[in-house]
Simulated assay, not measured.
Amino acid sequence: MNVRTRETQVTFDHPFQLSGTDGILPAGTYRVVTDEEPILGLSFVAYRRVATMLHTPALAAPKGRSACLAVDAAELDAALAKDRQLSA
């Protein structure tokens, strides 16, 4: 089965925490990689998200230990929404 990979960046203005991460992550811009697989049997092209990975540290952070953390996409979206509320 073909899997497509999309890469985006998300920016947090405030420190944040996601389940499965060690402690609080600092504010900054992070690389997010999403893997999606096609949904077969439809009369149109559609994809289902199968994995979302957050790369640490933030892009502008000093080089240090890097990690690729599997995260829940809905939790990441909620953390971004909370960050936007704090910034408003």
Rank of each mutant, 00 (worst) to 15 (best):
M1Y: 13
N2A: 14
N2L: 15
V3E: 11
V3G: 09
V3Q: 08
V3F: 08
R4P: 06
R4D: 11
R4V: 15
R4G: 06
T5D: 05
T5S: 12
R6A: 09
E7S: 10
T8C: 03
V10E: 03
V10I: 03
V10Q: 00
T11Y: 00
T11R: 02
T11H: 01
T11N: 03
F12V: 09
F12D: 07
F12R: 00
D13M: 10
H14Q: 06
H14Y: 09
H14C: 04
P15C: 02
F16C: 12
F16M: 11
Q17Y: 06
Q17E: 15
L18K: 02
S19E: 13
S19P: 15
T21P: 09
T21C: 12
D22H: 06
D22R: 05
G23Q: 09
G23R: 02
I24C: 02
L25S: 04
L25Q: 04
L25K: 00
P26D: 12
P26W: 09
A27E: 07
G28M: 03
G28T: 08
T29K: 02
T29G: 01
Y30D: 06
R31W: 05
R31C: 08
R31Y: 03
V32N: 02
V33I: 12
V33P: 09
V33G: 07
V33R: 10
T34M: 09
T34V: 15
D35R: 06
D35H: 13
D35C: 06
E36G: 10
E36T: 13
E37S: 15
E37R: 13
P38E: 05
P38L: 03
P38S: 06
I39A: 07
I39L: 13
L40H: 00
G41M: 03
L42N: 12
S43W: 08
F44Y: 15
F44A: 12
Y47A: 12
R48C: 09
R49K: 07
R49A: 09
R49D: 08
R49N: 11
R49L: 14
R49V: 15
T52D: 01
M53Q: 14
M53N: 12
M53D: 12
L54V: 03
L54Q: 02
T56K: 00
T56F: 00
T56S: 00
T56N: 00
A58T: 02
A58P: 04
L59H: 03
A60C: 01
A61Q: 06
A61K: 00
A61V: 05
P62C: 07
K63Y: 09
G64W: 03
R65I: 13
S66H: 11
S66I: 09
A67Q: 08
L69E: 02
L69A: 01
A70E: 12
A70F: 06
V71M: 01
V71S: 04
V71E: 06
D72C: 15
D72P: 13
A73G: 07
A73L: 05
A74M: 11
A74P: 05
A74W: 07
A74D: 15
A74S: 11
E75A: 15
E75Y: 04
L76R: 00
L76N: 02
L76V: 02
D77A: 14
D77Y: 03
A78T: 12
A79W: 01
L80K: 10
L80Y: 08
L80G: 11
K82L: 15
D83S: 10
D83R: 02
R84D: 15
Q85W: 11
L86D: 08
S87W: 05
S87D: 11
S87R: 13
A88W: 04
